Simulated scan of single mutants.
Amino acid sequence: HILRQRPASDRYFRAYVRVGDTNFTMRLRDWRPNGEVIAPLAYREQMAQEAQAELQFYRPEFVLS
């Protein structure tokens, strides 16, 4: 369902990973502004939660003047 909503020009990569691998999780965080995790859903949900938490730092109500 997710892939059908994305442009045909997007590129997709498949990787076999160890769930809970800290190195892989750190790499996903590095790539987050330029990529999207499709599966496994646990990683997808984790990346979404982290991005939402980061956004709290940049909301106008938190800007110091």
Rank of each mutant, 00 (worst) to 15 (best):
1 H>F: 07
2 I>Y: 12
2 I>G: 00
3 L>H: 07
5 Q>C: 09
5 Q>I: 01
6 R>P: 00
7 P>I: 09
7 P>Y: 07
7 P>A: 06
7 P>E: 07
8 A>P: 02
8 A>C: 00
10 D>C: 08
10 D>K: 05
11 R>T: 12
12 Y>F: 15
12 Y>S: 06
14 R>Y: 13
16 Y>V: 09
17 V>I: 15
17 V>L: 10
18 R>Q: 11
19 V>P: 07
20 G>K: 10
22 T>D: 11
24 F>P: 01
24 F>C: 07
24 F>Y: 11
24 F>Q: 04
26 M>P: 00
26 M>I: 15
26 M>K: 12
26 M>L: 14
26 M>F: 13
26 M>E: 15
26 M>G: 05
27 R>M: 13
28 L>S: 04
28 L>K: 03
29 R>L: 15
30 D>F: 10
30 D>A: 10
31 W>M: 12
32 R>I: 13
35 G>Q: 04
35 G>P: 01
35 G>W: 04
36 E>R: 06
37 V>D: 02
37 V>C: 04
37 V>T: 06
38 I>T: 06
38 I>F: 04
38 I>Q: 03
39 A>L: 12
40 P>R: 07
42 A>Y: 10
42 A>D: 15
43 Y>K: 02
44 R>N: 08
45 E>D: 12
45 E>M: 09
46 Q>H: 05
47 M>W: 01
47 M>Y: 02
47 M>T: 08
47 M>C: 07
47 M>H: 01
49 Q>Y: 08
49 Q>M: 14
49 Q>P: 02
49 Q>E: 09
50 E>H: 05
50 E>W: 07
51 A>G: 05
51 A>M: 06
51 A>Y: 01
52 Q>V: 02
52 Q>S: 10
52 Q>L: 13
53 A>K: 13
54 E>C: 09
55 L>A: 15
55 L>Q: 14
55 L>T: 05
55 L>I: 04
56 Q>F: 01
57 F>T: 09
57 F>V: 02
57 F>P: 00
58 Y>Q: 04
58 Y>A: 04
59 R>G: 00
59 R>D: 04
59 R>Q: 11
59 R>F: 00
60 P>A: 10
60 P>D: 14
60 P>N: 13
61 E>L: 02
61 E>I: 04
62 F>G: 03
62 F>H: 12
62 F>A: 09
63 V>R: 14
65 S>Y: 08
65 S>I: 03
65 S>P: 02
